[in-house]
Design a protein around this nucleic acid. Structure first.
Lengths: 167, 167
DNA sequence: ATAACTGCAAAAGTTTTGCTCGAGG
DNA sequence: CCTCGAGCAAAACTTTTGCAGTTAT
């Protein structure tokens, strides 16, 4: 769960972790990777799903109860500007965040029944769309697919496993 | 620009206009197509691009200066719930709206240079993604692609025609 | 010593709601 | 008439900002 391997500094196969990426960006702009920022980055790094600003604050407070919403938003803004975060729109315009790592494309299903957001993998999405985007006179920088859907399991059985996990 | 043709009431090829659709939905739920609502619907119907709540109010006020923001939001909510509107996320989380008509899929390019939103056509998008969505246990209801991009023209010539039109 | 960071509180936006009056079927 | 809709103003949120004390270099 913590850092592992990556003993030397020569290999080029070591995938930099989210916290490492954030640290680089921060330091390259004269900023510091402080305790508060590290906690927020680590929460985002370890999050299995996208989070709202509220959830992020709640999680961070478990590690340091004094962390404030200002820091959450300041950090989210910073990481977003650095393209390290992706924003996802949940139900009712709810904004959620998740680490973007290096992918340029991402797809998500937003469940209309319970509001959870599920990631969907489609490596070809960006490539397929490139010609049409170019034809419009644009150069693609980031691409995301959003699917609103109903839960099959809920419709058939009246209940849904996913529903029983925190939003 | 108004209604044309559709003389009889027998043909099944008459595509109901946005205002007509809205009227049906309204009346079927015991509500009324009032003057205010009609103005708002007509503005949305005639809009060439997606609009913010603010723009919608501004346009509507040109026809009736007394229209209030409450009515804008109430109408937007109503039409959204009825699936007659599509929400698009502009830059910086700005919410924009456009009529959805009957399409289940829509694609938009958001320009990072000037913030405009351009529609993109890809009729196969929904079909291509269906298997993956089903595999996750969901039944697709609506699908939208969002592309953030840079303007090629601006990069090459230092200016952009689109930029000079109102956001 | 200097520059950056944080929490707090206030501000700024945006969207929703309660209320009362007016309009419409 | 009696219901539904509209505007106004206030409330409710979410996100941003100014400030003053604190921390790290």
């Amino acid at each position: 769960m913590g850092e592992m391997a990556s003993g030397g500094q020569s290999a080029e196969q070591a995938p930099p972790s989210f916290v490492e990426l954030a640290t680089r960006i921060l330091e390259s702009s004269g900023a510091r990777m402080t305790v508060v920022r590290r906690i927020l980055c680590e929460v985002l790094q370890n999050a299995e799903h996208s989070m709202s600003s509220d959830q992020l604050l709640t999680e961070a407070k478990k590690r340091d109860p004094l962390i404030s919403m200002s820091s959450v938003y300041r950090t989210l803004k910073f990481l977003s500007d650095a393209e390290l975060l992706r924003q996802i729109d949940g139900l009712d315009g709810e904004r959620r965040f998740e680490k973007a790592d290096l992918k340029t494309a991402a797809s998500h299903i937003v469940c209309r029944d319970c509001g959870i957001v599920v990631s969907l993998s489609d490596p070809c999405l960006a490539i397929r769309e490139t010609p049409a985007i170019r034809a419009e006179g644009f150069h693609r920088e980031r691409i995301s697919l959003r699917v609103e859907a109903k839960c099959t399991e809920l419709a058939e059985t009246g209940d849904c496993k996913r529903r029983n996990r925190a939003k």
